[in-house]
Design a protein around this nucleic acid. Structure first.
Length: 534
DNA sequence: TCCTCTTCCACCTTTGAATCGA
DNA sequence: ATCGATTCAAAGGTGGAAGAGG
């Protein structure tokens, strides 16, 4: 494990916030006309600025390989893990501050895709978004020292296409493009988030975008998975060529040995690298800039026909990479950075054959009594041991023994997302409603409310951006500001059941996060103790 | 007919309990 | 009694094939 960690350092990609302080404008902010966000009282010390946290994507090179081929992720009714798995290295955290780490997977655009002629093409309008769910790292909340000690792995995150999934897996539509996002939330005094002063960051790694499929479409992806995923070792061929792969699919594919696969991968990679090196991709900055978050490389040639983009039309905005939000005391939301640049009006017919922009909507992650109580067990989702680090024993001890813990699974329900086309993508402000109550109630779509449209001109080119925004004030009651009932209510004293038990669904401590027409509903499951109603 | 999805399968890794020895 | 190493079996992850369904 240590060896793995050490060997991958150079492959990691550092996602870095550009804000120097809470009121600092990003280089392009002024040009964007974005306002500064007020400071967060709890974040006035430099070492506590949540935007100073740096996140490094583990195995970035592997992600890049997949991305270049057009990453596909299998979704099954029972839930399937992501591969490559989402692992990050955290730095810059306050060692003693507690954070909650969670991931969501959001639609990258409003299209449905099909794999035709060895390339992904738009096949129509996207289906309504699936219930949005958050995957909370099982170690959450934990101190910064804990998170920074080793790789943070979300490998147990599972994707499903089962709309009624009882296991808390992230629900996706097949043949749609998605973008995973990592949220770092500073836990409040109750080891929860969602309270008034909650601050959080959202990290988006462009190369982790994928298309969900029920069976692999692109043979290159299949080979990459087989070659790199240890669980798929059974499909690798031996050096002698006695392959299960060839046995099973001999009529379709030639015999492929390990060495051949390796050679092909190298060849493919070299080919791509060669193109990169030769500047072929210079005309396709959407590819090149995908890995150059900080360069501010302008985007995209929509007419590109290079092999890469024909296999996997790139998002034309690799710039939606990094943003940081912060709570604003008055509950209104501000942005300090630009989330994306690609907002050109899409009029060209050819655009239909290419991926469009990454998500343009705002993070649904938000505040409110995300309350955590003592939990007796955690799933080991972090690399390495949990041993106390010398020199940080206090923090560690506190981390592991006193910290109430939350479970991996949070349930959320998202109303069909407003289709944010590439054209003048509406920018969605949202309010949040968190509750740990628990009676199941129907999810009520939040009425479409004011939509903050961001003129295209406002969305310049940024390869990295930090956005500070406010989190809504908490609504400890059972209704949010719009009068909607809570999504779930739990009777006082109702114990939480172990996660992955659908029967516990109605007994989850819940968080609902609402945006206009976008509603997150997050349930927390506990493996041990009861929740306390606050 | 085509496309997508589900189910089942064999093969593999991972995980944790049991065992043993120092 | 404790700790670490080893062994073993069960659990779970994997992609492919076949077939169902729209």
């Amino acid at each position: 494990m240590l060896q793995e960690k050490a060997s991958t350092v150079t492959d990691e990609h550092v996602s870095r916030l550009q804000t120097g302080g809470e009121t600092d404008l990003l280089p392009d902010q002024s040009r964007l006309g974005l306002s500064t966000a007020p400071t967060v009282p709890s974040s006035t010390e430099p070492d506590q600025n949540i935007e100073n946290i740096k996140v490094v994507l583990h195995e970035r090179e592997l992600w890049k390989k997949f991305h270049e081929a057009g990453t596909e992720m299998i979704i099954t009714k029972a839930g399937r893990r992501m591969f490559p798995s989402y692992k990050v290295k955290m730095t810059g955290m306050n060692p003693k501050t507690k954070y909650i780490l969670l991931i969501d997977v959001v639609p990258a655009d409003d299209h449905r895709y099909k794999f035709c002629d060895n390339k992904w093409m738009v096949a129509g309008k996207a289906e309504p978004a699936m219930p949005g769910r958050l995957y909370v790292h099982p170690d959450s909340p934990a101190t910064g020292a804990h998170w920074m000690r080793q790789l943070v792995s979300f490998q147990k995150l599972k994707l499903t296409n089962n709309h009624l999934d009882p296991f808390g897996h992230i629900i996706l539509n097949s043949m749609h493009k998605y973008q995973p996002r990592l949220h770092i939330v500073k836990a409040d005094e109750n080891n929860a988030f969602g309270s008034k002063n909650t601050a959080y960051c959202t990290h988006v790694f462009h190369e982790t975008a994928f298309i969900s499929v029920t069976s692999y479409q692109n043979h290159k992806i299949t080979q990459l998975k087989i070659e790199n995923n240890p669980f798929a070792k059974g499909f690798r061929g031996s050096e002698e060529g006695d392959l299960r792969v060839s046995r099973l699919q001999g009529k379709e594919y030639p015999v492929i040995s390990k060495s051949m696969v390796r050679q092909r991968l190298i060849s493919t990679h070299s080919h791509l690298a060669g193109k990169l090196g030769a500047g072929v991709l210079a005309g396709h900055p959407q590819v090149l800039s995908s890995y150059q978050y900080d360069t501010g490389v302008p985007l995209s040639n929509p007419d590109s026909q290079d092999p890469i983009s024909t296999h996997f039309p790139q998002s034309r905005d690799p710039n939606l990479l990094y943003h940081c939000f912060k709570h604003r005391d008055n509950g209104r939301h501000l942005e300090l950075g630009c989330k994306r640049s690609y907002l050109e009006t899409s009029t060209a017919v050819s655009d239909e054959h290419y991926f469009r922009s990454p998500p343009s909507y705002e993070s649904p992650l938000l505040s409110h009594p995300y309350r955590t109580e003592a939990i007796t067990s955690r799933e080991a989702c972090m690399y390495g041991g949990m041993e106390t680090e010398s020199g940080s024993g206090a923090a560690d001890a506190d981390d592991l023994t006193n910290s109430p813990s939350i479970n991996c699974n949070m349930w959320a329900t998202v109303q069909p997302y407003p289709r944010y086309g590439m054209e003048g993508v509406p920018y969605q402000p949202f309010t949040a409603h968190f509750t740990n109550s628990a009676t199941v109630a129907p999810v009520v779509p939040h009425p479409a409310s004011s939509v903050v449209s961001r003129p295209q001109a406002d969305l310049g080119v940024y390869n990295s951006a930090a956005v500070q925004r406010g989190l809504s004030p908490s609504f400890p009651g059972s209704r949010d500001s719009s009068g909607h009932p809570p999504l779930y209510h739990r009777k006082p004293g109702s114990p939480l059941l172990p996660h992955r038990d659908f029967s516990s669904y109605s007994a989850q401590g819940t968080i609902s996060i609402r945006e206009p027409a976008y509603q997150y509903q997050v349930g927390l499951s506990s493996t041990g103790s009861n929740w306390t109603d606050s």
